[in-house]
């Protein structure tokens, strides 16, 4: 049997693994590698729908970098990403700690309830919240009115200054539970003896968290921060459903992917779309590297 391979003395056909991997290889070549190269080629061409392509050199990039809409999209997306990290992640961590310390039998139920919005796709959430934010009728406006006597008539989705806060509020509702699940999983691996030792030494809960818990959940925290950033920079469906394809008054809810969609599919210029795609990939790549560097622990250096 010269045609067979052995693994610990048992024969098997050497092509077996390759045969199993064939579907992946075909799909990866056609729908990953080829489009990747094609995106590079396309970004130097101007197209009119999928029919024609004319070489334009760096014109697509020149156009993007001189387009005020691009900077608006970049600003909005960055605000959203910063809000995700600075508001949403601390809340997720806080809830995870509360759940982790709780001895209640309802713990599991709370975890499920807080996670549940994540089951609903961004489009459905957008449809739902476009009614929830309705002046006078929407439950969000009514709730705010009952609580602080303001906001019953606030038009969250048609005032430029309120569109980003509205998006951030919706994403908070959607993703706070999702990140909480990761923090909760990390907290469950924290060494309980270390925590108890610190408590016996008289450390306050805050000190225990800062010096015992946080260092141990760092790898997961870094992972969550980077994944949140990558996800935030690709925000599209939520503003698309909430604000329609115009992305709100004055494009106040335009995101980078929204800008990409608008150029590639509303204006029909796939070349510019591909160029924006590369710029987005570059931005995400650079930010991830910076975050990885910034969060490196002293021991790793």
């Amino acid at each position: 049997m010269s045609n067979s391979k052995t693994f610990r003395g048992v024969n098997y056909h050497p092509y077996a693994p390759w045969l199993f991997l064939t579907p992946y290889i075909i799909i990866a070549l056609t729908f990953f590698l080829y489009p990747l190269i094609y995106a590079g080629w396309l970004s130097f061409h101007q197209t009119d729908g999928p029919h024609s392509a004319v070489f334009v050199g760096l014109d697509n990039f020149k156009f993007i970098f001189s387009d005020p809409s691009f900077y608006k999209a970049l600003k909005n997306t960055t605000i959203y990403a910063i809000a995700s990290i600075c508001i949403q992640l601390p809340l997720s961590l806080g809830l995870a700690i509360l759940l982790n310390n709780s001895q209640s039998k309802l713990k599991n139920l709370f975890r499920l309830l807080i996670f549940s919005p994540n089951l609903v796709g961004q489009i459905f959430v957008g449809v739902l919240f476009s009614v929830i934010f309705t002046p006078r009728y929407g439950i969000f406006n009514i709730g705010i009115e009952k609580l602080i006597h303001w906001g019953l008539d606030t038009q969250w989705l048609s005032k430029p200054g309120l569109i980003m806060p509205a998006l951030i509020i919706v994403s908070l509702w959607m993703y706070v539970g999702y990140n909480m699940i990761y923090f909760l999983a990390a907290l469950q691996t924290v060494d309980k003896q270390l925590v108890e030792a610190a408590q016996i030494d008289g450390a306050s809960p805050w000190q225990v968290f800062l010096h015992v818990t946080l260092p141990q959940i760092r790898p997961v925290a870094v992972f969550v921060v980077i994944m949140s950033t990558i996800g935030s920079y690709q925000l599209f469906e939520l503003p698309f459903a909430l604000l329609k394809s115009s992305f709100g008054v004055d494009q106040a809810g335009l995101t980078i992917v929204g800008y990409l969609y608008d150029n590639a599919f509303n204006s029909g210029d796939l070349g510019t779309g591909a160029a924006i795609g590369w710029i987005l990939a570059f931005i995400i790549f650079v930010i991830s590297i910076i975050q990885l560097r910034a969060t490196n622990s002293p021991e790793d250096k």
Partner: peptide, 18 residues
Amino acid sequence: SMMFPAMLFLAPLYQIIY
């Protein structure tokens, strides 16, 4: 391949599918 954001492929994939 996991490093590339999905949105990068939006425009080229459209053309390929076409």
